[in-house]
């Protein structure tokens, strides 16, 4: 376990800002205590400092996870967000897409969102903007990237892709092993 280097922090924050914009600040300056990012086995964990200090007692090989895993650094030093970060992305998300109940299941199986399954979309979403995806009952289901801007969405045919799938909560079942 170690703090992120400057380069790593930069890469990670760039990624995060695609989804939550300036709200990253509220992740770090929290009223309920000090929170920090820590790197452990190429994965980035978001924890309160107290818990981090206690987790330091456990030696590296035996420490499996602590706090919330945000994602991992790939071998090429890119940052990939995991579905486990959804709890912190969803409340701060700037751009959202709501999925119709009919295509909810399809998204949870790892498919992109088609125009036919699009329930609602935040205004002014630009192309390739990171979006958090909700069900119509306002339950966050995952996140992805908008394939088309809001205005384009209105005109396209129903079978075209509106948002690219990146992560969905179905991954808790599909690839439980790779979460950590």
């Amino acid at each position: 376990m170690r703090p992120l280097t400057e380069e790593e922090t930069k890469i990670m924050f760039e990624k995060l800002s695609k989804y939550i914009g300036e709200n990253i600040k509220s992740l770090i300056d929290r009223p309920d205590g000090m929170y920090c990012f820590r790197l452990h086995k190429e994965r980035v964990y978001y924890v309160s400092e107290d818990i981090m200090k206690k987790a330091a007692n456990v030696c590296r090989e035996n420490l499996i996870s602590f706090g919330v895993c945000f994602g991992k650094f790939t071998k090429t030093k890119k940052f990939r967000l995991h579905i486990t970060a959804l709890d912190y992305l969803a409340p701060y998300a700037k751009f959202k897409i709501w999925v119709k109940p009919s295509s909810e299941q399809s998204f949870l199986y790892g498919n992109h969102i088609l125009k036919s399954g699009l329930g609602r979309i935040t205004d002014n979403t630009s192309k390739y903007q990171g979006v958090v995806i909700y069900s119509m009952a306002d339950v966050p289901l995952g996140f992805g990237v908008a394939a088309k801007s809001t205005t384009e969405c209105r005109r396209t045919d129903p079978m075209s892709i509106v948002a690219f799938h990146q992560a969905d909560v179905g991954e808790y079942l599909r690839n439980e092993d790779s979460l950590t």
Binding site: Y46, V47, S48, I51, K54, A55, N57, V58, E61, N62, L63, I64, S65, F66, G67, V68, C69, I83, T84, D87, V169, Y172, E176, D177, L179, T180
Partner: peptide, 30 residues
């Protein structure tokens, strides 16, 4: 433990440290 990690994250629990020891060794660790 993978199931533990999965379940904890799914339930939105952030106050846990997951470790992999033999339970008998605990007083020596923490």
């Amino acid at each position: 433990l993978k199931a533990v990690v999965g379940n904890l994250h799914r339930m939105g629990i952030s106050n846990t440290v997951v470790s992999n020891y033999d339970g008998r060794s605990f007083p020596a660790i923490m």
